[in-house]
Design a protein around this nucleic acid. Structure first.
Lengths: 342, 342
DNA sequence: TTGTAGGCGTTATCAG
DNA sequence: CTGATAACGCCTACAA
C-alpha cells in the first residue's frame, strides 16, 4: 500500500542548481546569504529545492566548518528526575544560543559512557556536559585535553581539565543531619551507596561532621550501604532496617537521594511502621515526586535548573571565548522540611 | 594553572601517515582493515595515532559513507519515567546492533520537535523513533517520505508513512473502568487532557464504552479536563473534585497517566480524604513511582520496555531491509490492582 | 549578481 | 604494502 520514498536524500546543491538552471554558488547563496540573490531567482531556487526534497547535508557542512551546533549531555541515569531537570536547564540555555541538545544515557555503565564520549568527540560536538560514572576516568581527561570543551556536572571535586558545576554535598549532608538532630533523633541511619560515588561520599562526610559536632557518638550514625541509588534499593534498605533489634534500630534515616527515600518510605508504611512516628526520613534532590509522596518528603534541594543553565553557559564560554579559564562553580543546597520529619 | 590543549583536533590521517612514515592508504587500512597491514607497521601507526591524539572525523566518514550509526528518540517529556523506560528498551536493541542512541526532548512543544527533526534529517541519522506532539504534523510525514526511517511510538492510529508501535489505549481505558465498576463505583471521574492528545482520547473512549456496556448512565462518568499530564495538574484536578457538592462527587477517578494520579492522590490525602475510602484512584502507565507511592497505585501497565525494543527493531528493519513493509504493532495493556482501589 | 575552483578528512580503487 | 587519485556535498573566495 505504501509508496516508495520520492527520493532517498538524493538531491544535492548541484542537482538543485541544475534543475533551477543556476550555478551551484547561487544555490549556496540562497542557503547562506539570501540577501545576495535576486528575489526572483531566490524564489525559483527555493521552489526547486522543495520539489526535489532537498535536505542539507550536515556532515558536509560540518566537515567544512570544522565544528557542529550541538551540545551533548551524558547522564548517569535518564530515569532519575533529578537529571532530567538539570537537562531542562541546559535546554533553556542552549535555546538562547541556538544550539540543540542531545541526551545520552550511560545508565551508570562505564563502557556505555566511554562509547558515547568516543562518538561525541568524533562528531566534533561543540561541547559535552557530563555527570560521569567516574570523574577520574582517563578517557574523560583525554577528550578534554584534545580540545573538546567538557563541563562536569554535579561533582564538587577540583579537576584541572575542565569546568565543574556542583552543589556543596558536604553541606547538604550536614543540613540533613542537623535537621534530624534538632528534631531529637539520637540514632540515625545513613542510606546510600556505593560509597565510591563522589556525591554519596561527600554527603556522608557532611552527615558525620554534623553528628560529631553535635557531640553525639559516631557509633549511633548507622551506615546502610546500597548497591545503587534506586527505589528498589530503598525498599531493600527498609527491610534491613526493620530487621534490626529495636534497641539498636534508628529512629530516622538520611537517604543519599530521593529515589532511595521513596523506596524506604514505601517499605516502611507498607509494613506498618508510621512515618515520621516510627521512622523519620530525609531525602536528597527534592525531585517533584518527593513533594508528591503521600507522606511528603523532607529533602535537601539542589538548584537543578540553575545547575544545568550554568553548566551550559560554561561550555559555551569555553568553546567560543579564547580567554576562557576553567572554573569550579559551587551552589548551596537548602533543606526543605515536610511531613516525613514531622 | 591549566595547560593549553595539546592539539585541537588537528591531526588527520594525513598527519599520521607523515609522522609514521607510511602512506595515507596504509593508515586508512590500519583503521578499517587491520589484517592487511603487517603487525609491525600497524603497531607503529597506532603508536603515532596515540601520540598525535588522532581522532577520526565522523563528518568526513559519514559524508563518504552516506549515513550514520546513530538512532534518535524524540520524546514528549524526558521527565516522565514512562518515556525513559521506553528509551531503555530502545537502548537495549540498539546495543545489539552496535548503534548508539541519542534522546531529544521536545518538551511537548511543536517548534522544538520540528527543530530536532530538521537537524536529525540533515545529519542523516539511521532512523528516528518519535512520540510526536501531533502525529499528523506535515513535517513528520515529509521527513519519512524523503527516506529517513521513522517509527511512531505510542500511537495506535494507522499511518501510512511509517511503522507504529503502540498499546491498545481503548482497551486500557476499558480495563480501568471495568475494574472500578466491579468494585461498585457508580460515579467516576475521568481525569486527563488536553483531549487533543491521541492517547487521552482513546483511553476516554474505552472508559465510556465500558461504562455504557455496564448499563450505567453516561452522565455519571464525569470528565475532568487538564491542560497537561503532570503531577501539578493532578493536584489541581483534586481541588476541583473536592469542590463538587458531595451528592455529585465521584467516588473514584480514572487518570490518563500516573503523574496525574500521583498528584490527585497527594492532594486527596493532604486534604484529609482517604484513598481508597473516600476516593479510589486508577492511574495509567504503571511507572515505578506508582508502586512506590505510599498508597500503592492501581494502574494500567504498558509493556514499556518491549515497546522500545520493538520500535528499534522496526526502524532497523526499515533502514536495512529493502523488502521492508510498514506495520502497525499493537500491544495489550494489563491492569495491576493495588491498594488505591482497595 | 552570478559562475568557477579548490579543499575540508575519509575511504576505496588501482597500478606498481 | 605504497602512492596517487577520485569521490562524498558543501562553502567561500575570487573572477567574470
Amino acid at each position: 500500500m505504501q509508496e516508495a520514498p520520492v527520493s532517498v536524500h538524493s538531491a544535492s546543491v548541484k542537482d538543485v542548481a541544475a534543475a533551477a538552471g543556476v550555478s551551484l554558488g547561487t544555490v549556496s547563496n540562497v542557503l547562506n546569504r539570501p540577501d545576495r540573490v535576486s528575489p526572483a531567482t531566490r524564489e525559483r531556487v527555493e521552489r526547486v529545492m522543495a520539489e526535489l526534497g532537498f535536505v542539507r547535508n550536515e556532515s558536509a557542512r560540518q566537515l567544512r566548518a570544522g565544528r557542529s551546533r550541538t551540545l551533548a549531555y551524558v547522564v548517569l541515569d535518564a530515569g532519575n528526575p533529578f537529571f532530567t531537570d538539570v537537562a531542562a536547564g541546559i535546554d533553556d540555555a542552549a535555546d538562547d544560543a541556538a544550539l540543540s541538545v542531545v541526551l545520552c544515557n550511560s545508565a551508570n555503565r562505564a563502557d556505555r559512557e566511554a562509547a558515547h564520549l568516543t562518538r561525541l568527540e568524533q562528531q566534533r560536538v561543540q561541547g559535552i556536559l557530563i555527570t560521569p560514572v567516574d570523574p577520574d576516568a582517563v578517557a574523560l581527561h583525554q577528550v578534554a585535553r584534545r580540545g573538546t570543551p567538557i563541563v562536569v556536572v554535579d561533582r564538587t571535586r577540583r579537576l584541572e581539565d575542565f569546568c565543574t558545576v556542583a552543589v556543596d554535598d558536604v553541606l547538604g549532608g550536614r543540613l540533613a543531619v542537623e535537621h534530624l538532630v534538632g528534631r531529637g533523633h539520637r540514632r540515625v541511619a545513613v542510606v546510600g551507596g556505593p560509597t565510591s560515588i563522589g556525591q554519596v561520599h561527600d554527603r556522608y562526610a557532611g552527615a558525620r561532621a554534623a553528628w560529631v559536632d553535635a557531640g553525639l557518638d559516631p557509633a549511633d550514625l548507622v551506615p546502610l550501604e546500597t548497591v545503587a541509588m534506586t527505589v528498589a534499593e530503598g525498599r531493600s534498605a527498609g527491610e534491613r532496617l526493620a530487621g534490626l533489634p529495636s534497641r539498636r534500630r534508628p529512629t530516622a534515616a538520611f537517604c543519599a537521594n530521593d529515589l532511595l527515600a521513596l523506596g524506604l518510605l514505601q517499605q516502611s508504611i507498607g509494613s506498618g511502621r508510621s512515618v515520621p512516628g516510627d521512622l523519620a526520613i530525609v531525602g536528597y534532590d527534592d525531585i517533584e515526586f518527593a513533594a508528591a509522596a503521600a507522606v511528603p518528603l523532607t529533602s535537601v534541594r539542589q538548584p537543578r535548573h540553575q545547575l544545568g543553565r550554568t553548566a551550559a553557559s560554561l561550555v559555551l564560554d569555553e568553546s567560543t571565548n579564547p580567554d576562557h579559564r576553567h572554573q569550579q562553580v559551587t551552589f548551596t543546597p537548602e533543606l526543605v522540611a515536610r511531613a516525613s520529619t514531622l
